[in-house]
Nucleic acid binder design. Structure first.
Lengths: 334, 334
DNA sequence: ATGAAAGCGCTAACAT
DNA sequence: ATGTTAGCGCTTTCAT
């Protein structure tokens, strides 16, 4: 591997000059710049990122901290991770994977190694020990999700208010006025998406004169089945529990309740899941890939200008029409 | 951040001695070792992995190279990645994400930065330009999957021979003798899992006196539906196309063909998918998490002893019984 | 068993 | 505009 020394020698300049053209740190005569660049090309020179990191005291490595016990998010998670890594690369950074427990200990341990300049934290909880560990460390970080009070923290998240409004808009435009919300009876008592969606749902129902009905069930097919007797004649259901959705669907079918004829369903899930349901689901699709890139970009912006406080970015899920929603006129609800 | 210098000073020894206790590189008197360790504890010392990497010429960072365009593997991929990262951590390594194109250019580019000691390559193709890039680079690597001729390459993969045998065993024990295999009509013409499974299926059919029927279809619900007219009276189907499986199921249902009453189905897919099918599927479950850890361990073994050539590890999928397979006696096939 | 000192390959003052 | 040089924090000979 060629080093700056080799390049400098071949170009007949000092290693400092090589460094200047490499980083654009100081002005260099076009003529010598050319000589240096030619030398680099001839030698196949690539700078050693490690040495650079040590000398510049910036590693240009970011960590992607995520829970060990994966919520089974499927393709959304994959999209998110890939786009985060690509976004980092586009700005000259690398992304290391840090599976970490929810207490902040592993985070602290890993931070102390000095490998990373910043951390992207996934699956943020309303109260989150990892966030405290990060705050205490002084290492810049970006949250994917939000704590209960995210003021002053760099974060990007789904806009649950707006997402819920879009889902309700769609159903109301179809004439539905009796709309239930189903969420997961989470092991995590205070799961942000659930809490925020429920709050948005309640508020919107209030504003729009709708009667709220909020149901919870286990995140499984069996859980979904158990919902049917509790639907109280609703003609539409918004489901934030992708596995339960299949149980709901199958139980409705077996009771002769037609979807979307009698009951309309909007599910917060991925297109993959939507496609294998019968009927194919109308979904609210998570902006996973976009969030990954935005989170990384916000963090790097901050890293490169510590004065900066990148504003929170809240993106709604997008409505993708499937075959599980229809006009309410003829509904004969469950 | 405390440095070796600080520790050495506090312990009243030289920095070399600190390094010796840190790495166990040379014998140190219990007494001085204690003093050094006390000093480290008091100062909250953690060694800087970057400086260590630069000095030792080993970064202890591994890359996980994976295709940008994710095959939508869902939870299997997530498990794989998480377990690979954990395995690396357990041995004092970090894992960086490298989304790369299938030509080897990005790989070469990234390798030249000198950030990583080795690469774990996912989604290996039978002919794979990335493998050539790696071979040419001299950087040690491990394959998850196999090229057409993987001799001499460190690799771990699913044992498709054995997996297929297990699936057929199960169906034959239930009395089935007319068993079809469904695979994906892949964009990639030479996708290892498909080719190897098909070969195993043909060979096993030959050995066991079964008539092979190999069908392909698009990886979608629509693709799955198109299979039914082509089943030629088979009483059992092995499906290696997880999305098509749902189309198959629904088309059979709408034609009044009962699963598992008339046709049994074994699907190579994840438990998540199995759970939302109706009936819940009997599956062959991929050993994703195990492969992730094995791949990383094999690579690190090699890194730490270049003499070593870790043997290939081929693991079968595991049969998990669901409700989509039953005895053949009363079958009235499609 | 311990220490002194020379780098690892680069960046970034500080000179010129 | 370019060069000199002192580190970044650690590992690792080579002495003692």
């Amino acid at each position: 591997m060629a080093t700056v020394r080799d390049v400098a020698e071949r170009a007949g300049v000092s290693i400092a000059t090589v460094s200047f053209v490499l980083n654009g740190t100081k002005p260099v005569t076009p003529a010598t710049r050319d000589r240096v660049e030619a030398a680099m090309a001839e030698l196949g020179y690539h700078r050693n990122v490690l040495a650079r990191a040590l000398a510049s005291r910036r590693t240009r490595i970011l960590a992607l901290a995520h829970p060990t016990l994966e919520q089974r998010f499927g393709s959304t998670t994959t999209d998110f991770v890939t786009s985060a890594a690509r976004a980092a690369r586009a700005r000259g950074y690398h992304l290391v994977l840090w599976p970490v427990d929810t207490d902040g200990d592993e985070i602290r341990e890993l931070l102390s190694q000095g490998l990373v300049d910043g951390v992207v934290l996934m699956e943020v909880l309303l109260e989150d020990a990892r966030v405290e560990a990060l705050t205490g460390s002084g290492t810049p970080f970006a949250l994917i999700g939000r704590t209960a009070d995210p003021a002053g923290l760099i974060h990007v998240d789904i806009d649950f208010e707006q997402s819920m409004a879009i889902a309700l808009d769609h159903l109301q435009e179809l004439g539905h006025r009796e709309i239930a919300l189903v969420s997961a009876g989470h092991a995590l008592p205070e799961y942000g998406p659930k809490v925020r969606s429920a709050a948005a749902y309640r508020r919107l129902c209030g504003e729009r004169g709708l009667r709220p009905l909020l149901l919870e069930c286990e995140a499984s097919v069996v859980g979904g089945r158990s919902l049917v007797p509790r639907l109280e004649g609703r003609t539409a259901v918004v489901v934030m529990n992708e596995f339960a959705c299949f149980g709901l669907l199958s139980e409705l079918a077996s009771r002769g309740v037609a979807v979307p004829g009698d009951v309309s369903i909007v599910s917060f899930t991925s297109p993959d899941m939507a496609g294998i349901a019968d009927p194919p689901l109308t979904i609210m699709r998570s902006p996973g890939a976009t969030l990954g890139a935005l989170g990384v970009d916000a963090l790097i912006d901050r890293l490169e200008d510590p004065e900066l406080m990148p504003p929170p970015q809240l993106l709604p899920c997008t409505l993708e029409l499937g075959g599980s929603t229809a006009r309410a006129e003829s509904s004969t609800p469950a």
